[in-house]
Write a protein that binds this DNA or RNA. Sequence first.
DNA 1: ATCACATTGTGAAACTAATCACAGCTTAAC
DNA 2: GTTAAGCTGTGATTAGTTTCACAATGTGAT
Lengths: 214, 214
Amino acid sequence: MPTSERTIGRLSLYRRLLKQAVADGQENVYSHELGARAGATACQVRRDLMGLGCAGSPSRGYKVRALLERIDLFLDAPDVEPVAIVGVGNLGRAILSFFQRRRPKLQITAAFDSDPWKVDRVVQGVRCHALADIERVVREQEITLAVLTVPAGAAQEVVDTLVAAGIKGILNFAPAPLRVPLGVFVEDMDLAMSLEKVAYFARGRGGAPRKGGK
Amino acid sequence: MPTSERTIGRLSLYRRLLKQAVADGQENVYSHELGARAGATACQVRRDLMGLGCAGSPSRGYKVRALLERIDLFLDAPDVEPVAIVGVGNLGRAILSFFQRRRPKLQITAAFDSDPWKVDRVVQGVRCHALADIERVVREQEITLAVLTVPAGAAQEVVDTLVAAGIKGILNFAPAPLRVPLGVFVEDMDLAMSLEKVAYFARGRGGAPRKGGK
DNA sequence: ATCACATTGTGAAACTAATCACAGCTTAAC
DNA sequence: GTTAAGCTGTGATTAGTTTCACAATGTGAT
């Protein structure tokens, strides 16, 4: 059981690269190939795959199709998972359009916004509801995942509502740390923080930590 | 010298929280307070601050103002750092508007897009240039940081241009691993990967890693 | 004064993640 | 057939990060 946040992230990345490989007609792949494309070492790739129970042949490497199937089985839920998005501002709409052309297993099926003008509008094929309807809609559609793109000031209040409605995972774009009960997973996407990090390391202070491809 | 990617991220977060504290008129702060707000342990906060050379008093904790000053000095460059954004689609515009109302030290000053209709337009107060002008504009404005919001297919090509123009740090939203020479720092913001991660851990498989506030 | 208390600063321990190193296969060439 | 080469699978090692534990310190109450 290879359950670490880092590993899961890499598996998701491998999957995308493998899909590309399949599209290119590639049948087999070596750990060092996949590693190069993913920015990881061959060793790490092998260990990640080993954790999944994947086996390769010393001469031909891993079978791309088999690998994909195994990763899908591991990462995806059996059924499609509906996702809610709260906050249909610029960022919210961008993310909505970004996700609507991919991810068959993760589909945004409900949007929420505090702006009465947006309520009942359909944005990118998704109906926008009032914040007050979060609990009802989330329960009706049995949604467990949410993307949060509201201003920092409103974030915690919305989160409490989402959690009360049964949400188990949140992708948080609001620049504010969220307090959630145990059992709810939060992944922070903090734009400001990330750009500051880039600025810091671009200055060359930190000895340029990894990512230096060939 | 506390130079680890994780630590830098936390310092950036502390800074934001401390600014809030100053705005609220708070003069002193204990490590456990800051830790609670940041989702970290008191211990970790103390170690992070220790690395910066900050000292607190056992009775009053740390002086908020002094802390802020010290973190600013450590994280920020002496002057304003101009930032370029390449790709003025939905996501690009959202990020543009997000950053334009904050970060005095990091300012987006140039935008680039392949769409001729957008070239020479002014978006969110920032002039949009053609991709062909990247090298010239980046050199003219001495830009070293870039935000990348182009489709995956165009990413590597744009990155090569940016690097050739002297860019040292990239915040990458394109769902593709970038190859860059040593000395160039890349931070990936992979929306699809992050949402998959959230979906996985929301299922409760990974024993709910951290983030469980009170 | 003195005592009890809460907090800082930090060496050491525990834990986690990444890398090394090499045995064991599998194929291809001669 | 035998040999050489290159890859996988994995125990052992190393590196890095977080947490523990506690001495040292300043504060306020008695």
